[in-house]
Design a binder for these strands. Structure first.
Lengths: 345, 345
DNA sequence: GTGAAAGCGCTAACAA
DNA sequence: TTGTTAGCGCTTTCAC
């Protein structure tokens, strides 16, 4: 067991001195009814007469009553909350921010809260008050992911999880199809030597893209030119890699960047090499973001529709929790391609 | 009252059919001890003998026991969770993403969870299971903010809240000082006509910057050239405003952009106007982000240290919850200035 | 249409 | 060192 002492502060709405939170019994007493009736009146259970309902509600309002959600949770055996976990390093990006809000939006529609689960304090873990979890791009090496899945919590992953335990549901983006379309688009624009600044295969996404690239190159008899980057590589490293790719083979006439933010980080390198983006060198990103529309020229990118992905994950989780959808369900998540001037000469 | 029926799914770790979650009594029974002893053993309360403790722990492990955090919360009158609310429109930015993770990190250090509170379903609001809330840049018009504060929840705001209810604590960034330093820096670099693409005064931050700008201009006998933008304005609007500023007064030789993302969005406009950034026109942003380091040239920006700001808010909230810090405490949050080529010729 | 009582799973006060 | 009892505040039988 990894239970440990949990120093905890003031209670639920108890921190305002002298303003103790009123509870159901006090309302019931003040309204001259029983606990049960008060509860039913306030929840509109349709059991009490309209007259008493109104009276109870009025009293509750006067006393400033608000039900204790923790007690309700305990009784109903449901927390009304789902957890959300993201790979630690990547969390800065616009992609994940949108993903998060997709999850939160969808959860709010179902009247659920969302709790952010981090990689902190892994050894002495606390338990989270959640009915299930959404795992964005789960890494096999992520101990938090392993523990959450190991604990038997219903989990929905965005993209595949390569570890032992199967999640209860999976939302899969159509990366291979869209990456093929991107490479076709580059070839159509005249590219004959497409290099790929790849992302590490620790994520399913990174691995899928590398596979798609290799396959496409084989089918099109193009020599693959890959350079893989570790997760969360700083700008300088990204730029070094881009330089290396361009120097290694001067015939390269198109560069596709997988890591989020890499495409724009690479711009100074390309400029320094004296190349003109969109002419000498086509440039594309595997992750779209608003900054790619501001660059000169704007950069073509795959639109991962992160907000919709997050919403889809949450929805699948709710469907599974409700028993409406069987465990092991996999849902496809459509993505898109935003072609911009960086690939259209 | 805004209580309403809450359809809720499966229970806490109850969703795996046939794998009912074991509870404390079952562990106690299996170990041949009382509920209390089992509880004490698992929590290392120092009440039980080492021998029985080990036995209980072994049994708990064998049965796959894990304590129900909801029950614990109810008993301890503390949720172990804080809420986090951000203005809805702004939530896409790198700034808020970092802020969020600052809060989450700090909370994790105190063994707390963080729940994201959105503006959704305001009419029929549910209650959130939180001991307190952090409000990032609270808008006076935000009904969620008003409700949270009105409910008497201990709240810490990042920047001032101009509404009725006082938050329990405030973390204040030193915007005026740093904005003055930025304008001084521009003047030092030769700027004589500094225009300001301002952010709406609905946030304390936006209002503070506008005030600082006016004051600085007065002190330096410079004619103020302000253009205020609504919150969350799309790129096109930002660009229209930038064009208007530049056209209105061709003598403008420096432009400061307040809204996050505006500085880079404005680049194409400046290019189209035939100006050279860093030479004809100095450009600076009031919010730093990684994309500003990739632009050509890199853009000078105020570093708001969002991660540290988030952590400071969470910490202040915990201090107040613990009663270590009085309500009404205001803490300063130091920020910085990243001077880059866009303002150094 | 309403009330009394049971109990969700846990911790804390009081005994032994 | 351990067990017994009494709740935390709520929803839900079951009885009237």
């Amino acid at each position: 067991m990894s239970c440990h002492d949990v120093p905890r502060y003031g209670g639920y709405r108890r921190s305002v001195p002298g303003s103790e939170q009123v509870n159901l019994v006090e309302v019931a007493k003040a309204a001259g009814v029983s606990k049960t009736t008060a509860s039913d009146a306030l929840r509109n259970s349709g059991r009490v007469s309209e007259q008493t309902r109104k009276r109870v509600v009025a009293v509750a309002n006067r006393l400033g009553y608000s039900p204790n959600p923790v007690a309700r949770s305990l009784r109903m055996a449901s927390t009304g909350t789902i957890g959300l976990h993201l790979p630690e390093i990547l969390t800065r990006s616009e992609y994940y921010m949108s993903f998060v809000f997709g999850v939160v939006d969808q959860a709010a529609k179902m009247d659920y809260d969302v709790t952010l689960l981090t990689a902190q304090h892994v050894p002495a873990r606390r338990l989270h008050r959640v009915d299930g979890v959404v795992l964005g791009d789960p890494l096999e090496t992520d101990t938090v992911v392993r523990e959450l899945l190991g604990a038997g919590l219903p989990a929905v992953t965005c993209e595949r999880y390569t570890g032992e335990v199967e999640p209860a549901g999976i939302v899969l983006s159509e990366h291979t199809a869209m990456f093929d379309r991107l490479l076709d688009h580059l070839a159509d624009s005249g590219a004959r030597a497409i290099a790929f600044l790849a992302s590490s295969t620790v994520t399913d996404w990174g691995a899928t893209l590398q596979g798609a690239y290799q396959n496409w190159c084989e089918r099109h008899e193009m020599r693959p030119r890959v350079r893989e980057m570790a997760f969360g590589s700083p700008t300088a490293v990204t730029q070094d890699n881009a330089r290396a790719v361009l120097n290694a083979d001067p015939s390269v006439d198109a560069l596709v960047c997988a890591p989020d933010g890499a495409a724009s980080a690479v711009l100074p390198v390309i400029r320094a090499a004296g190349k003109t983006i969109g002419a000498d060198l086509l440039l594309a990103s595997c992750v779209d973001s608003s900054e790619l529309t501001h660059t000169d020229p704007p950069i073509t990118a795959i639109d991962l529709r992160p907000r919709e992905a997050g919403a889809a994950c949450a929805q699948l989780l709710f469907d599974i929790l409700a028993g409406e959808t069987p465990r092991g369900t996999v849902r496809a998540h459509p993505i898109g391609l935003n072609a911009r001037r960086s690939t259209r000469g």
